[in-house]
Amino acid sequence: MTTAHHNAAAGAAPGPAAPDRPEPQGGTAPQGGPDPRERLAGRDRPGTEGATAVSPVLDIAGLEVHYGLRRRRRKALHGITLSVARGEAVGVVGETGSGKSTLARAVLGLVRASAGSIVVAGEEVTGYREGKWRRLRRRGVVQYVFQDPLRSLDPDLAIGESLAEPLLLRGVPRAEAVGRIRPLLARVRLPEDLLGRLPGEVSGGQRQRVAVARALVTEPELVILDEPVSALDSANRVQVLEILKELRGTGVAVVLISHDLGSVAGIADRVAVLYRGELVEVGTARDVIERPRHPYTRLLVSSAPTLHTAPADRSERAALRAALDG
């Protein structure tokens, strides 16, 4: 665990353990008052009395990611501080280009952080070179599920083979590997006769569950899912979310990335809102949805229709958009 900058952040935060949320601030960069990121860091880290003895599975502090070089250098992520505990589900929401996927890629070592630290399962990975990343990925502590499982599963490989592959790669005998994937299949509610089929031969909902099963083969501590239910219909969506709920119950940390607040609201313990590369709001799903503070979160919540409420009046949304752009 690296603690130095956490303490600094928590020290600057007004009453990190205070149950009340500070008053909303006008824009992305409030003048005066404490930096919102530091407040977030404070709220994210519920003081000493609430802190568990176990270190979080994922601990990101002051993360910066840049794309491009020299004059074309652009900030993709700025000052991200977020931790995810064992058995916790955190939803990361934001619009196209907000940095959601970059955040996931940074945690997987697919993009390099230019500052800050990432601790995965107690291991400080920030300065890792490619070889060390590869070793970490091979251990399968962190797993990633893509939005489109057709792209992440080998189309010419039977589903059973795809599931057994990570185990075979690690020298597990075939018979044992096959024995280990059967209970997994039950866990994602798929029939065993699926094992002999190709990814293209099963439905989209089943395929997404195969992708989840494959992520679980290595018994990860952290699973990151990018838009896992966006393309699914209601029944399949519920099934995948139920599976993730159970997974969380077994102590695995789950990070759900989505452009749609509604698709993470059902299972996320906390929701983190990304806007233009900054974490503008972190809170319980209920807090963020019922009492959004940042103008972008307010716009996001007020744009979403529900069965009982229409989106907010368009002049109200236009005003929020103007506040963001201004």
Binding site: S234, A235, R237, V238, L241, L261, G262, S263, A265, G266, I267, A285, R286, I289, E290, V301, A304, T306, L307, H308, T309
Partner: peptide
């Protein structure tokens, strides 16, 4: 009924319907 229940259980309605 199932579709509506699923929607209310796993969507924003869970929170916003109660607010309304």
């Amino acid at each position: 009924r199932l579709l509506v229940t699923e929607h209310e259980q796993y969507g924003l309605d869970r929170f916003r319907a109660s607010r309304e």
